[in-house]
Amino acid sequence: MKAMKRARLIALTTLLLLVSPALAQNRVEITADRTVMNDSAREVTFTGDVIVIHPNVTVWAPKVVATYGEGGTTDIKTFVATGGNVRLKTSEQDATGEHAVYTPGDQLLRLTGNVVVNNASGTVNATELVVNLATNVSTFTSGGGGRVTGVFTSQ
Rank of each mutant, 00 (worst) to 15 (best):
V57G: 07
N118D: 09
D33F: 11
Q93T: 06
T135Q: 07
M4S: 13
S40I: 12
N132A: 03
H99S: 06
N125K: 05
A41S: 12
G71F: 03
E128C: 01
A41K: 13
D75V: 09
K5N: 13
T135Y: 08
V64G: 09
T13I: 14
N136C: 05
V130W: 02
H99N: 07
Y68E: 08
G48M: 07
R6A: 14
H54Y: 12
T31A: 13
L18M: 13
T112Q: 00
L16H: 15
L129Q: 02
T153H: 14
V28L: 15
I10M: 15
S138D: 04
Y102W: 05
A61D: 08
D75N: 10
S91A: 06
E98N: 06
I51N: 08
A120R: 14
P62W: 07
G150A: 07
L129H: 00
P104R: 09
T35N: 11
G71I: 08
K89Q: 08
V148A: 01
A126T: 00
Q155M: 13
A32I: 12
W60Y: 09
V64K: 04
G145A: 01
S91Y: 02
N119R: 09
L12Y: 15
V19I: 10
L15M: 12
G150K: 07
F152D: 01
R8C: 10
L15F: 14
G145K: 04
G97P: 03
A120L: 13
G105V: 11
V130R: 06
K63H: 03
V65K: 07
T90G: 07
D106W: 08
F152L: 03
M37S: 12
R110A: 02
L88D: 03
N119V: 05
A41M: 15
T96L: 00
V44Y: 09
L12H: 14
F152A: 04
A41H: 13
F79I: 09
D49T: 13
A66W: 08
N85L: 05
V36P: 09
L111E: 03
A32W: 10
A7S: 11
